[in-house]
Nucleic acid binder design. Structure first.
Length: 468
DNA sequence: TCTGGGGTCCTACCTCTT
DNA sequence: TCTGAAGAGGTAGGACCC
C-alpha cells in the first residue's frame, strides 16, 4: 500500500503561486465546477434560435476540428476535437458556428467573479472549468452540497448557463464527480444528469476504483495502450499494480504519480494565480506553403501577436521556438535562447526566421507556430540579433574549438555555414526608446480598436495567409 | 474525409563548466 | 596538461490536458 500524506494543523486552504503546502489534517472539500457545453451554451444564449438544435462550434474551415458540440449534436456521435468533415457527415443538419473566443473569455470572467465570491481559493483550469477549495467556507456557507447547489443556481440566474458540480476531498475525485453529474447524450437522445455529485471521504476509493483507467489524469492514448497490454482496464486494477511495475512501464515520475492518485493519496493543492510559463501562437494554413517569403511573413505575423501578448502581460522572453508541421503531419520544433529577454515583434521574427532558415520547406508546411518561454517580468532591456545561442551556434562552436567570439552561425541540416556579419538592432535608449514608444502606441490602438487595427507594414493587405 | 490551438510537464540527449 | 564525473543549461520531441 501507499504511504498517506503527513498531517499538520491549521494550514491555509489555498496555495498561491507554485508554493506547495503540506496536506491539511481534516479532509478537504474540493468543488469542481464544469460548465455544460460552454461554447455552445454561450452561442445559444446570444442567439436563442439555436436552442434545442444540434450546434457545433468551430470546424468552419476545411481543416478545422470541433471545439464544442451541443448535447443534441453529441447524440449523433459528434465530439470535440473531431475533424469538422467527420462531424458534418455524422450530423448533416447541425448548425456550424465559428468560435468567438473573445466572447467566451468575457463570459468566463463573469463566471470566475461569481466563484470568487464563495472563496478566494479558486483555481481556473480553463475558460469553463475551475476548482474551489471550500474547506474554509463550510461553516459559513452551510456544507459543500449547499455551496454546490447555490453556485449552480447563481450561475444559471446570472449567466443563463448550466453547469455540473462535483464535490470530493481531492481534485481528481471532484473532477470525476462533476463528470458523473453531467448530462449524457446517446443515439437514444439527451439525458439530464444529476447536476451535483458529492463523494464522501469514506467512499472515495470505491468511487475512484470503479472508473475506467483512462479517466485518470495523466493517462492519454499512449499510456492507455501500454496499460491495456498489461490487462489494466480500471483504476482499481491500476492501483493493484505494484508501484515498481508501474514505474517500469511509464517512467519514474508518472508511475509514482499514477500510483498515488489511484490510492487517493495525492493531495494536489488548489493553486491560485499561476503565472504563465509560455505564450504561443500557431496556425494551420488552408493550403500547404513551400514559399520561404510567404512563411517569413507568417513568422512576422505570429511573432507580432506573441509580442503584443507579452507586452500586455508585462513580460519578456529569452527563448523563442518555431513549430513546423509538414504536409505529412510530421512536426518539428526549433528553438533559440537569447541572453537578453525580448518583447519586440521584429526581434522575435528575426530569430524565428533564422530558425526557419535551417529547415527544408520542400515537403510543404501545413502549420506554423511561434512561441516564447523563459519568461521574466519587467520587459526587456536591450537586444541584438547575434545574442542568440541556438543549436547551430553551440554545435558549430563545439566543432571549431569552443570560441564564443565566432561569427553568427546557423544550422542548415548538417551543413552549417558561417553567416554574414551579425545584424544589430538599435538598443533601447537610442533608437530603441522610439521603438518602445511605438510599441506602446500599437498596444494602445489594439486595446481600443482590436488586434486587426494595426500591424507591421509588410503585412498590409495580407493579415493572414489565404484560407481556402 | 482526416487530424485546432494554447498550454504544461517530462525525458533524452548534448554541450559546457567546474 | 589531461581526464572523468557531476551539474547546469539548452534543445527537441512526446504525452497529456482543456
Amino acid at each position: 500500500m501507499v504511504e498517506r500524506g503527513t498531517v499538520s494543523s491549521d494550514i491555509p486552504d489555498i496555495v498561491a503561486g507554485a508554493a506547495v503546502q503540506p496536506a491539511p489534517a481534516r479532509p478537504r472539500s474540493i468543488v469542481h465546477v464544469d460548465m455544460d457545453a460552454f461554447f455552445v451554451a454561450v452561442e445559444v444564449g446570444d442567439d436563442p434560435s439555436l436552442r434545442g438544435r444540434p450546434v457545433v462550434v468551430g470546424g468552419a474551415g476545411r481543416r478545422g476540428v470541433v471545439a464544442a458540440a451541443s448535447y443534441q449534436a453529441r447524440a449523433f456521435g459528434v465530439r470535440s476535437a473531431m475533424p469538422s468533415a467527420t462531424a458534418r457527415r455524422l450530423c448533416p443538419e447541425a448548425v456550424f458556428v465559428a468560435a468567438r473566443h473573445a466572447r467566451y473569455r468575457e463570459v468566463s470572467a463573469e463566471l470566475h467573479a461569481i466563484l470568487g465570491e464563495v472563496t478566494p481559493a479558486v483555481e481556473g483550469v480553463s475558460l469553463d472549468e475551475a476548482f474551489l477549495d471550500v474547506t474554509g467556507a463550510l461553516r459559513r456557507l452551510g456544507g459543500a452540497r449547499s455551496i454546490a447547489a447555490a453556485l449552480r443556481e447563481r450561475i444559471h440566474g446570472d449567466l443563463g448557463l448550466s453547469c455540473s458540480v462535483g464535490v470530493a476531498p481531492r481534485k481528481l475525485t471532484a473532477k470525476l464527480a462533476s463528470e458523473a453529474a453531467k448530462p449524457t447524450a446517446s443515439s437514444q437522445g439527451v439525458h439530464p444528469g444529476p447536476g451535483i455529485v458529492v463523494v464522501d471521504p469514506h467512499e472515495e476509493l470505491a468511487f475512484l476504483h470503479a472508473h475506467p483507467v483512462e479517466a485518470m489524469w495523466g493517462i492519454g492514448s499512449a499510456t492507455l495502450a501500454r496499460l491495456q497490454r498489461r490487462g489494466v482496464r480500471t483504476i482499481g486494477e491500476l492501483a493493484r499494480l505494484p508501484e515498481a511495475a508501474l514505474v517500469g512501464m511509464v517512467g519514474a515520475s508518472l508511475g509514482r504519480t499514477l500510483h498515488a492518485r489511484s490510492w487517493a493519496a495525492s493531495d494536489e493543492p488548489v493553486v491560485v494565480g499561476r503565472a504563465p510559463k509560455s505564450i504561443s501562437h500557431e496556425e494551420t494554413f488552408a493550403v500547404d506553403h513551400r514559399s520561404r517569403a510567404v512563411l517569413d511573413r507568417e513568422v512576422l505575423r505570429l511573432a507580432d501577436a506573441v509580442a503584443g501578448r507579452l507586452r500586455r502581460a508585462g513580460l519578456a522572453a529569452r527563448t523563442l521556438q518555431v513549430k513546423i508541421r509538414f504536409a505529412d503531419f510530421r512536426t518539428i520544433t526549433r528553438s533559440s535562447t537569447c541572453r537578453q529577454p525580448m518583447d519586440d515583434a521584429r526581434v522575435l521574427a528575426s530569430v524565428g526566421r533564422e530558425l526557419l532558415g535551417s529547415v527544408d520547406l520542400a515537403p510543404g508546411v501545413r502549420l506554423l507556430g511561434v512561441g516564447v518561454s523563459r519568461l521574466s517580468a519587467g520587459g526587456c532591456t536591450q537586444l541584438c540579433l547575434d545574442d542568440t545561442t541556438g543549436p547551430g551556434d553551440r554545435r558549430a562552436r563545439a566543432r571549431s574549438g569552443g570560441s564564443k567570439a565566432m561569427g553568427h552561425r546557423r544550422s542548415t541540416g548538417g551543413d552549417d555555414r558561417v553567416e554574414q556579419e551579425p545584424t544589430f538592432l538599435p538598443e533601447r535608449g537610442s533608437g530603441g526608446a522610439d521603438r518602445a514608444r511605438a510599441d506602446a502606441a500599437v498596444d494602445e490602438l489594439r486595446r481600443r480598436f482590436g488586434d486587426a487595427a494595426i500591424g507591421p507594414a509588410s503585412l498590409v493587405g495580407r493579415r493572414r495567409a489565404p484560407r481556402r
